[in-house]
Nucleic acid binder design. Sequence first.
DNA 1: TTTTAATCGGACTATATTAGTCTTAGAACT
DNA 2: AGTTCTAAGACTAATATAGTCCGATTAAAA
Lengths: 131, 131
Amino acid sequence: MLRFSKKSDYGLIALKHIASQGEDNVVNAREISEKYNLPPDLLAKILQSLSKSGIIKSQFGSGGGYRMAKKPSEVTLKEIVQSIDGPVHLVGCSREDTDCSIEPQCTIKQMLLNVEQKLEAFFSTITLKDI
Amino acid sequence: MLRFSKKSDYGLIALKHIASQGEDNVVNAREISEKYNLPPDLLAKILQSLSKSGIIKSQFGSGGGYRMAKKPSEVTLKEIVQSIDGPVHLVGCSREDTDCSIEPQCTIKQMLLNVEQKLEAFFSTITLKDI
DNA sequence: TTTTAATCGGACTATATTAGTCTTAGAACT
DNA sequence: AGTTCTAAGACTAATATAGTCCGATTAAAA
Ligand code: SF4
Ligand code: SF4
C-alpha cells in the first residue's frame, strides 16, 4: 500500500516537537508521549534510533532527555525515515540481504532502481524545517 | 521500509510482457508465470485486478488470455500500483476508513499529505512505455 | 455437442512485517 | 542512596502480504 510506518509517523511528530524547543532545551520521552498520546515504550525506541543515527543527542540521568544534534534545515526526511525504518528500497533486489529468485528473467529491475533513486532524491529535498 | 509489494513487482513484469506482444495478441497467465517463474495463482489474481481496472482486457475461454486495453504510453505507474495494491497513502489519516486517534494533536498531517500528493504526481509521470 | 483451456471470484492458509510491551542495566542529578 | 532518565534486547500481539485452492463461468476447438 506504500505507506510510512507508524514509527516514522511518530518519529516525525516527536522530532518536530524537539526542534520546536530550541537548541539547548532537553525534552524527555515521557513528556512527548503524553503530549501527543503516543505509546511511551515505542516512542522511546524511536528516539533511541534517532539518537543512534546522530539526528538528536541524548542526555542521560535525571532531568535528561533529548535535544537536536543538527539544525532542522539539515535533517532530511530521507534521513529520518531511514534511521527509523531502515533504507528505502522499492524492490527486494536493491537490498544486499535478499536475493530475488526471478532476477535472471527480470526485465524491470533497472527501471525500478532508477525510480527508487529519484524517490530518495525527492525525500532528500524535504527537511525538518519544512515540516 | 517503504517498498512496492511483490504483487506490484510481478504485475509490472507481466504488463511489460503483455505490452511487448503487440495490440491484438493475447497472452495467457500460465505462459507468463512460466516464462518469469512467478506463482501462477497469484499472477492470475494480479492480472484480474489489472483487468478490472481497465488496464488490460481479458478474453475468456480456450485460447483466451490478456491484451492491453490502453496504449503503454497512457498507463502510469501510479495507476498500476493503485489497481494492484490499492491507493498510495503515506499516512493512515489520508484514508477514509482509518481514523487516527492522535489526529487532534497531530502537527504533521498537512505536511505529509502534501508530500503524498507530490509522490503521486511523480508516479504519474512514469508510464509503461518508460518501463 | 462435448471437451478443453482459459478467466473470475471468493475463501482460505502461511509467512513476514509492523506495532507494542516488558525487563534489566547504566548514567547523571539531588 | 534514591530517583529519574536513556539504552538495549527479548518478547508478544496485531496486521498486512504472499500464496493456495476450488467451484463457477465463458468461449474456442475438437
Ligand atoms: S523481480 Fe526484478 S525488480 Fe523485482 S525484486 Fe526481483 S529482480 Fe528486483
Ligand atoms: S499521526 Fe498525524 S499524520 Fe499520522 S496518521 Fe495520525 S493524523 Fe495522520
